[in-house]
């Protein structure tokens, strides 16, 4: 491979966050790289989401031992694993059965979807606010507008996190109540993990906007945040939708 001369290295961008590995880069170059990385991350996260939904429908369709909507615990189940490290029946159903011989016949109730819908609405609003902050930066570059939207963005993400935690407390079942309950709570845990990440980013956006760090055409940073927040909103809606519609 012939390597001939040169490129003139005249990027000279002096902003601190445009350096990496000791060399200078243009904002355009950083933007391109970060957006591509983000889309790859979203692709991987999207696959995780698809697999989560696969788990939901798979366990629901198989309904192994009638355990999707858990209803009973029999002696046969309690003795199914003699010598195992734990008694699956009494441990797995600690809240409903203290004895392996106890027959529980009432199915666990469906979770109220309202809380999930509230979480989804809050994160959608947060995504719209992130979008607004990006537009404000792109069009006006104003400190006040971005700072205000950034603060609201953070508040809404925080509210969605709180609501998600409240939902955990309001559930009419716990993790041990069969496959439906397990998968439902896993969906919520997954959503909470995403919301915490967005919360971290939202606080950073707000804080940095206060320091006027998104001025001078640096809206591309906000675009990255907006894209990720929109993705989290979409994935939350999908998980809430699946868990609400397919009991």
């Amino acid at each position: 491979m012939a390597m001939t001369d040169i490129e003139h290295d005249d990027h000279g961008d002096s902003h601190g966050d445009d350096h990496a590995g000791g060399h200078h880069e243009t904002p355009e170059s950083r933007d391109q790289k970060e957006r591509m990385a983000l889309w790859l991350l979203i692709a991987g996260d999207g696959l995780f989401l698809v697999l989560e939904i696969f788990v939901w429908f798979y366990l629901r369709a198989l309904n192994t031992n009638g355990g999707w909507i858990f209803a009973k615990c029999t002696t046969a189940i309690a003795n199914a694993q003699p010598g195992s490290s734990r008694n699956l029946c009494t441990n797995g159903l600690a809240n409903v059965a203290n004895s392996a011989n106890t027959a529980i016949t009432a199915p666990i109730p469906k979770a109220d979807p309202t809380w999930g819908i509230i979480v989804a609405v809050l994160i959608v609003v947060a995504a719209l606010l992130a979008w607004g902050a990006e537009r404000a930066s792109r069009e006006r570059g104003g400190r006040g507008a971005i700072g205000g939207l950034g603060a609201l963005f953070f508040v809404f993400v925080l509210a969605s996190i709180v609501m998600q935690i409240v939902q955990f407390q309001e559930l009419p079942f716990t993790t041990v109540d069969g496959a439906y309950a397990s998968t439902y709570e896993f969906f919520m845990g997954s959503t909470l993990a995403h919301l915490l990440l967005v919360g971290f980013i939202a606080y950073g956006l707000w804080h940095r906007a206060q320091k006027n760090m998104y001025a001078d055409g640096r809206y591309y940073r906000l675009r990255i945040i907006r894209i990720f927040t929109v993705w989290v909103a979409v994935s939350t809606i999908i998980l809430v939708g699946v868990s609400a519609l397919f009991y």
Binding site: V55, L59, N65, G67, F70, I77, L88, N91, L93, S182
Partner: peptide, 21 residues
Amino acid sequence: ITDRATGTSFFVNQVGGNGWL
């Protein structure tokens, strides 16, 4: 981890999970 540490039932057939999963 959640099966083991929080008692969920993704993989335990007796309580609604499935080893094939």
